[in-house]
């Protein structure tokens, strides 16, 4: 129990953001017409590629003087993250483009 208290206190800022973001996420999404479910899922998916920031930080401060497992895994994380971000946003744009076209 003590550990849990410690964990909460040490990370209280992050936990605040997490809890409030949950409400925000629910609030933002409710009342979405079902027409938009697929593009929205795809758009949200692209945002979850925000882990790319972690990849950039990892590779950014990695020791590049020699090839290490961690460096390779880090680069892989950047590649994966970018695929998620760029692919996700482009494909979402492509879906939404169609809704606009024929007004």
């Amino acid at each position: 129990m003590e550990q849990a208290f410690e964990f909460f206190y040490a990370n209280k800022d992050a936990i605040f953001i997490i809890v409030l973001s949950v409400f925000l996420g629910i609030e933002v999404i409710s009342n979405v017409p079902s027409v938009l479910h697929t593009p929205l899922m795809s758009g949200a998916n692209a945002i979850s590629g925000v882990i790319i920031i972690g990849g950039i930080i990892l590779v950014g401060h990695a020791d590049v003087s020699k090839v290490s497992v961690n460096l390779i895994l880090g680069i892989l994380a950047v590649l994966f993250g970018t695929l998620n971000v760029v692919g996700g946003f482009v494909v979402t744009d492509r879906m939404l483009e169609m809704f606009k076209k024929k007004k």
């Binding site: 800022d13 992050a14 953001i17 997490i18 973001s21 949950v22 409400f23 925000l24 996420g25 629910i26 933002v28 999404i29 409710s30 979405v32 479910h37 929205l40 899922m41 949200a44 998916n45 945002i47 979850s48 925000v50 882990i51 920031i53 972690g54 930080i57």
Partner: peptide, 21 residues
């Protein structure tokens, strides 16, 4: 892990929105 609020918010936003969807 990185104490990065943008990542936390973005991630949880998608987590919550995805669950509702």
């Amino acid at each position: 892990i990185y104490h990065n609020q943008a990542m936390i918010l973005g991630g949880i936003l998608v987590g919550a929105a995805g669950t509702i969807l």
